[in-house]
Write a protein that binds this DNA or RNA. Structure first.
Lengths: 336, 336
DNA sequence: GCGCTTCACTTAAGCGCTTCAGTGAAGCGC
DNA sequence: GCGCTTCACTGAAGCGCTTAAGTGAAGCGC
């Protein structure tokens, strides 16, 4: 603890113990040395306050212990939740997270992913806006890439934690249909979707199956922009009786828009979200939403990237089922 | 672009141009070489797809281009916003952020800060739970540390972006007092406060000055836990007519608690938050809150840490003034 | 007692950069 | 034309580790 100005080096520990630096290096990693040597080394290291320099270690070993995390849009509150939880989980596993945000721009997404690779992260976990971009292939060749939400269609990724969006969409639309809604506005986003099929496809298919009258509008991730889109949806001549929002953040924009034009939720307009952000159950009214088990997604993604980094190529695709959280933002449409 | 398996090295660029590696190193950093050599080198580098290896560079130069970010509690949604924004701003300045979360535990905070130092970050930006801890001094000796919220009382920090919490508390309490509130519950948190005085102090002083009847309750950062505390406050025999919450996250808990026991906001209970999270203006009713200019805080903190890293020791303390956002969650108490 | 393996190390190369201390040529004043 | 500085570079050390290859001693079967 003494006010050591510079940090101790391996060599100093070696000199203190009379061993070679190699022996010390092995000892501290619990390899190839006798029990008592290891003990001696550990003690000397502790006394000198030695901590291995991760930079030198990375240069020599080729491993940085860093994992790159790339979000398509951290404007989305649920993505914030997701990514900071991924960071926490990685720290548990003695890895550091480098978190980057594409800010909703699919082109920037790949630039940042390359930047992460150039920064020498050991692996990548991405929740991409555009999982079908061809450049993912190039990246997945040079380091383990795990995707969350959708699989990278053209790349040999190290793994994927997929959302069963078909099931999610079905839950939401069936719920609304059951309540008697028919004219529904869907506020989508460039959102990861299940293998090779944009979530929009499911929306249209399910809409047709349930004989719904759907209007699909693209909404950006930020709450403020979503509000504007929701406003437009609610101002339509044949006003929809329900809003199905493809993220809770967008749904929050829906709340604001509804209130701005004096529409009661769920009386005048029902709203369904997607994700179940912690705030959603605190809104007034509480938000009906489709959620995924965040913790299990996180554990799976981290697990996948680490096994891939450690050279056990599994290439697993894990599909997560959705749950409908029925709360107070949905009800029978007034005319029904 | 050719499917280059391994990344090109400085030496390869040197060989391609017939220069020494030193010359190439200088050229690519725009130092000490003739214009035309620089151009030749850049071209060769581009053709080879050369990107300097940040690890090797870090080992040789002693700089990692990484800045550690440490939040006392990322449960707080505003802190999430703050830290992800800091990350974005740092990326603008060609630095990478390593974000760590103490999860509300003051002891863990210092452990993580040391871990960040051991990871060889060039500097640290912290928003600490306990800015008065002595161990900050030791850290601030070994690398530039900038604090947000409060100054590190015992440490020679590289700078601080302070919140004028006295003014913030005054704004909130005067607002409530003006509306006619007198019995007010204050839900605080181990929150950074202005130099050497916990924010609670201001609360009590201002409460006395305005002749208010205050009950101070400690609330954790997470929304769910805050809800429980708010519940307790509202269940008190002499129910307060207003809640002053020391973060918007806590205020969200207040909303949930009020709704749970059937109290109207602001009719039965007024609620004031602190921070102005993007969601706050979307709640129903919209949340009256005290906010700080997030963008300017971010720019200032990043600016401070970078000038310190670059060796220009300024040790500036920048104080940010608060603003009151009067919205719909506050009104006259019913009996008044 | 001999060759063989195993154990517990040591030696030394090397990861890919930066940087300090030269070095030769050109330019300059006088 | 001489010494001086400046310019544009080169050479080589070294950042602090890891790791492949090597070594000597001990242990083992037979």
């Amino acid at each position: 603890m003494a006010g050591s100005r510079k940090r101790a080096t391996l060599r100093e520990v070696a000199e203190a113990t009379g061993l070679s630096t190699a022996a010390v290096s092995y000892a501290l990693r619990g390899l190839q040395v006798s029990k008592e040597t290891e003990k001696r080394v550990r003690q000397a290291a502790a006394e000198l306050g030695y901590e291995a320099d991760p930079i030198a270690r990375a240069l020599a070993s080729g491993r940085t212990s860093m994992v790159g995390l790339l979000s398509g849009s951290l404007e989305d509150l649920w993505q914030q939740q997701l990514f900071f939880s991924l960071g926490r989980e990685l720290l548990h596993k003695d890895r550091y997270a480098l978190i980057l945000d594409a800010g909703g721009d699919p082109a920037r997404e790949l630039t940042l992913a390359r930047q992460l690779r150039d920064q020498r992260v050991d692996g990548l976990i991405v929740s991409p806006l555009d999982p079908s971009a061809h450049a993912w292939a190039e990246l997945a060749e040079s380091l383990p890439v795990v995707s969350i939400g959708d699989s990278l269609s053209n790349a040999r990724a190290a793994g994927a934690v997929l959302f069963d969006n078909r099931a999610g969409v079905t839950l939401a639309l069936e719920h609304l249909s059951r309540l008697g809604h028919q004219r529904i506005a869907v506020l989508t986003t460039t959102r990861p979707s299940t293998p090779d099929r944009p979530a929009d496809t499911y929306v249209l298919e399910e809409g047709a199956r349930l004989a719904l009258d759907l209007t699909v509008l693209a909404a950006p991730q930020s709450v403020a922009e979503a509000e504007a889109v929701a406003h437009k949806a609610l101002a339509a001549p044949d006003r929809p009786t329900a809003l199905f929002c493809f993220s809770d953040s967008i749904a929050y924009g829906g709340y604001a828009a509804a209130r701005a034009v004096g529409l009661a939720i769920p009386g005048d307009v029902s709203i369904v979200g997607y994700d179940d952000h912690p705030v959603s159950r605190l809104l007034s009214p509480t938000l009906t939403t489709v959620d995924w088990d965040l913790e299990s997604i996180i554990r799976a993604a981290v697990q996948l990237v680490i096994t891939a980094i450690d050279g056990r190529p599994r290439r697993r695709r894990i599909v997560k089922p959705p749950n409908l959280r029925e709360r107070d933002s949905t009800g029978r449409p007034r005319h029904a």
